[in-house]
């Protein structure tokens, strides 16, 4: 195939794919601004009233509150567990690591409905806890902890254990080593795991729906509004969510590129310093 034709075809394909990805979201957002009882673009009459109606819906705020509590519990459970798993798999000299890995990772590969139901049956039916925040948080943690562990594993594998050994040789206690060396090194991974865990928890529908009993969350509230026949107030909520996602994703991308540039500058500065040292036989001025 001639190259020009291939390029043209590639562009067309990308265009169609990204149109398919983004257009439905755009259409959903647009309908938030139409003054019509049902969400439609027909007879477009611009208004902001649906944002007001969405804002004054108490059931939505109840859902948001539940979602935040559950997410907080998930962070408390999943981050320590994920860290323990990663430390065990990278640092401990112990048998059966492959089996441990397979068990801990299995919830990621299981359907959310199964996680929700099995947690509900165990905690609520068998042990008699009332289904609610706790059962939902435990069900979510079973797979979110595994995601956290994967993030920690990736970072710990690039860590030089000699740093920890040196500190131990110099008389630091294991506790001091953990708090003064391991945790500071893990800080970026801890932050991204926390962000990921929060988002996963807040957005989750299926696992939560099947483990929370009669309670509701923000996502369940949205699903119920859509099921029970909607007004464009749902679209107003969707508009806010998509805009927030765009801002967060853009902020993340900008931070990533800035970090990349900083590393590139540091690398160049190091090379320059090294060259000066070699050529002039003296350390470069800082």
């Amino acid at each position: 195939m001639p190259d020009r034709l291939l390029t043209l075809f590639t562009r067309l394909y990308l265009g169609v794919f990204f149109l398919y990805l983004l257009f439905p979201l755009g259409y959903m957002m647009l309908l938030a601004f139409n003054n019509s009882r049902i969400p439609t673009h027909r007879n477009f009459d611009p208004t902001l009233r649906w944002f007001g109606e969405a804002w004054s819906n108490n059931r939505m705020w109840d859902g948001v509150e539940n979602s935040l509590w559950i997410a907080a519990l998930v962070l408390l459970i999943a981050i320590p567990l994920g860290l323990a798993g990663a430390v065990f798999l990278t640092r401990f000299k112990a048998p059966g690591k492959t089996a441990v890995y397979a068990i801990l990772i299995s919830p990621i590969l299981a359907p959310g409905i199964v996680l929700g139901i099995s947690s509900f049956i165990f905690w609520s039916q068998q042990l008699g806890f009332r289904a609610g925040w706790w059962t939902a948080a435990l069900a979510q943690s079973s797979f979110i902890a595994a995601y956290c562990m994967l993030i920690f594993l990736a970072r710990l594998q690039r860590f030089d254990p000699a740093l920890e050994e040196a500190a131990l040789d110099l008389g630091a206690s294991p506790r001091q080593v953990f708090l003064r060396i391991t945790v500071p090194y893990m800080r970026p991974a801890l932050l991204s795991a926390a962000a990921l865990a929060f988002l996963q928890s807040f957005e989750n529908y299926t696992t939560t729906y099947f483990s929370i009993g009669a309670q509701s969350t923000f996502t369940i509230f949205i699903a119920n509004s859509v099921r029970q026949g909607v007004t464009p107030a749902v679209n107003a909520v969707a508009f806010v969510i998509v805009m927030a996602t765009v801002l967060v994703a853009a902020g993340y991308e900008i931070a990533r590129r800035r970090g990349e540039r900083r590393r590139e500058r540091a690398r160049r500065a190091a090379i320059a310093a090294e060259m000066q040292e070699e050529l002039l036989g003296k350390p470069a001025a800082v």
Binding site: P24, Y205, A250
Partner: peptide, 26 residues
């Protein structure tokens, strides 16, 4: 790449309920 990644991440992080709802109205 940055721009396209952004275009992938946004629908990725909007949850499945809203993704289904968008097609329902469409």
């Amino acid at each position: 790449l940055s721009l396209l990644m952004l275009a992938l991440l946004v629908p990725f992080w909007v949850n499945e309920v809203l993704r289904a709802y968008a097609w329902r109205s469409l």
